[in-house]
């Protein structure tokens, strides 16, 4: 056994509860690693469905999952139960937003960031700082990635370091730049190594720098960020103003990283009547459905609707177009 963990550390891992928020590229590598490490309780939250283009980097999924149109959280849970039957793995098909993020991470000892957008990360940062839950930022694009550990009360939080999201359209996305598996594996592995230290009670060993990796440059750097917390200017961790949690109107549309798609979601609870919706949609396009979702090809769009009313409109990156398609064929 690795001396840095030891029998006592392994026992602690078996009692730990980790939430993977997002199970795309980073999240699937991280969940796989943590399940095999023996994390006692693993909750995997993801809003998305496995698609063929995911398979190049999202290691938990396969072509069967694509064919069956399985939600990633469901596919991940099934896979990881076969990997390690001694742990409790739960997949939650859900979109994290300001009204549910605190419930999603409640009781977690640590959260792994597997999100694919800034909005979710700032929301996660607010929730984790508010509740004193450590979380580990990770993000990738192309061959480049970043990671940073946030220990509320000890280290800078995300908003200390990244003061705000870039304006829309400014930065490259998975749509424009792609992302390669090696950097995903590097960043998720760094996230997991730090997680293992924290979960075994060794916070003093945690790297407090921002780590950047570029696998195409074969370059790994550690950049100092720890003093940013001491500036006392952070609205989140210095002033405890949780602006993202307090959003009166959650963003209802999100352009999805890596695909020509827009998600439409609703903060309030809804339950979609699949029978009624599929009967209506059958007149306009071919409908496919399973227990979790309903999918229909309409004009140049593929619309996937989940039980809670959330939809992914594939075929556009324009929120207004997606809203129009939703309103026209699903009904708001």
């Amino acid at each position: 056994m690795f001396g840095g963990i030891g029998p006592e550390g392994q026992r602690r891992l078996g009692q730990a509860h980790v939430v993977c928020l997002g199970c795309g590229a980073l999240g699937s590598v991280a969940a796989n690693t943590l399940a095999r490490a023996g994390i006692g309780r693993l909750t995997i939250v993801d809003r998305d469905v496995v698609e063929e283009s995911n398979l190049q980097r999202q290691v938990l999924f396969d072509e069967d999952d694509v064919r069956d149109a399985l939600p990633k959280a469901v596919a991940a849970e099934r896979r990881l139960r076969r990997v390690n039957s001694q742990i409790d793995v739960r997949g939650l098909v859900a979109d994290a937003h300001h009204a549910n993020i605190e419930a999603l991470i409640a009781g977690a000892d640590l959260v792994i960031d597997g999100a694919d957008n800034f909005e979710t990360r700032f929301l996660l940062n607010d929730a984790c700082v508010k509740h004193g839950i450590p979380w580990i930022y990770g993000a990738c694009i192309g061959s480049y990635g970043l990671s940073m550990v946030v220990i509320p009360g000890e280290t800078p939080c995300l908003r200390c370091v990244v003061e705000g999201a870039p304006p829309p359209g400014l930065t490259p996305t998975c749509d424009t730049s792609g992302v390669i598996g090696p950097v995903v594996n590097m960043i998720a592995s760094i996230q997991c190594a730090e997680a293992l230290k924290l979960l075994t009670g060794q916070a003093h060993l945690v790297n407090r720098d921002m780590v950047t990796v570029d696998v195409w440059d074969a370059r790994v750097q550690r950049m100092k960020v720890h003093a940013l917390r001491d500036l006392g200017a952070c609205p989140c961790c210095s002033h405890r103003r949780f602006e993202h949690l307090a959003a009166e109107h959650a963003s209802q549309t999100t352009t999805l990283c890596g695909r020509n798609s827009v998600q439409i979601s609703f903060p309030d609870d809804h339950t979609i009547d699949f029978d009624a919706v599929s009967a209506r949609l059958a007149a306009v396009g071919r409908v496919q459905r399973n227990a979790f979702l309903l999918r229909c090809a309409i004009d140049t769009y593929d619309v996937t609707v989940f039980r809670d009313g959330r939809a992914i409109v594939e075929g556009t990156r324009e929120p207004s177009v997606a809203r129009s398609v939703y309103a026209k064929y699903i009904g708001i």
Binding site: G22, G24, A25, L26, G27, D113, G114, A115, D116, N117, F118, R121, G138, A139, C140, I141, Y144, G145, L146, V161, V162, A165, P166, T171, P172, T173, C174, V179, M210, T212, Q221, M223, C257, G258
Partner: peptide, 10 residues
């Protein structure tokens, strides 16, 4: 001098 952008992919 390193200019370090945060990125959003995951």
């Amino acid at each position: 001098v390193t200019i370090l952008p945060a990125v959003s992919g995951g």
